[in-house]
C-alpha cells in the first residue's frame, strides 16, 4: 500500500541545501507493523511526515494506495486524511479546549459521520480503553499515559487503514508504554490496521514485524 522510490528531502541552507533524507526506497504492505529506528536527527519524523502526507518529498516518487501522491489535489489529500490515515504523536497533541469525548469525536465530524453512529463509535472506544469515567475531562486533567490513550483512540476512531505514530511512548514510563504497544499489536493483528511507528526502543520495535533503520538520512 505504500511505495517509496528514490525519495529525498532537503532544506535550503545558506547557499546550498541540507539533505535530511536521501534516496529512500521503501515498500510497506497492508497489515504490516513497521518500526522506524535511528539516532536523533536522522530524519525519522521527516520520513513519517512524508508517509503521512504532511510533508512533500523534494525528489522521488511516492505511491499511497497505488496513487502517486505528488499529483493529489489538496482536496483528495484531505479525503485520505479523513478516511484512511490516523496519527499518534509523541506530544499527544490533543486539543486543549475540547474534552476527552470531543477530542475523540473530532475526526468523525470531519469525516461527516452521522451523530448516532458517532456516539456509538466514541462510546465503544471509551469503553475499550477504560476511559468512560474520564470522558468529560479536559486533556490537562489527565496523566500522560491517559492522554496518549486518547491520542490513540482519536487516531483509530474513523477506522483508518494505516496509523502513523511518532515516538508514541517517548513521554511515557514503561508500564504506560507497554499498554500502548499492546494496544498497537492488537490493532494490527485483530483489526488488520497497518502501523508505522518511530521509536528509540528495541523493546517497542519488538512488537512489530519489521524494523527500518535510518542513519543520516540513508536507509541502513
Amino acid at each position: 500500500m505504500i511505495k517509496l522510490e528514490k525519495i529525498s528531502k532537503y532544506y535550503p541552507a545558506g547557499f546550498g541545501k541540507t539533505y535530511v533524507l536521501r534516496h529512500i526506497d521503501l515498500h510497506i504492505k497492508e497489515g504490516e507493523f513497521v518500526s522506524i529506528m535511528g539516532p536523533s536527527g536522522s530524519g525519522k519524523s521527516t520520513l513519517l511526515h512524508i508517509l503521512g502526507l504532511l510533508e512533500e518529498p523534494s525528489e522521488g516518487e511516492y505511491l499511497f494506495l497505488d496513487e502517486p501522491v505528488q499529483k493529489l489535489s489538496e482536496k483528495k489529500r484531505t479525503e485520505l486524511h479523513r478516511h484512511h490515515i490516523g496519527f499518534v504523536f509523541q506530544a499527544y497533541h490533543l486539543i486543549d479546549e475540547l474534552t476527552v469525548y470531543e477530542n475523540i469525536e473530532t475526526p468523525l465530524l470531519y469525516k461527516g459521520t452521522g451523530s448516532s453512529e458517532r456516539k456509538s463509535r466514541v462510546a465503544e472506544l471509551l469503553d475499550r480503553f477504560n476511559m468512560v469515567a474520564k470522558k468529560d475531562l479536559f486533556p490537562h486533567q489527565l496523566s500522560g499515559g491517559q492522554q496518549q490513550l486518547v491520542g490513540v483512540a482519536r487516531a483509530i476512531v474513523h477506522n483508518p487503514k494505516v496509523i502513523f505514530a511518532d515516538e508514541p511512548t517517548g513521554n511515557l514510563h514503561s508500564e504506560q508504554s507497554i499498554e500502548i504497544m499492546e494496544l498497537f499489536q492488537k490493532l494490527n493483528q485483530e483489526d488488520k490496521v497497518t502501523i508505522v511507528q518511530v521509536t528509540h526502543s528495541e523493546t517497542n520495535a519488538g512488537y512489530g514485524n519489521r524494523v527500518v533503520r535510518l542513519k543520516d538520512g540513508w536507509l541502513a
Binding site: 486524511h81 497533541h93 490533543l94 486539543i95 473530532t106 475526526p107 470531519y110 469525516k111 482519536r154
Partner: peptide, 10 residues
C-alpha cells in the same frame, strides 16, 4: 490546534 485539526482532515 490548527495543525492537529488539519492533520485530522479539516
Amino acid at each position: 490546534e490548527t495543525g492537529i485539526r488539519l492533520v485530522l482532515g479539516a
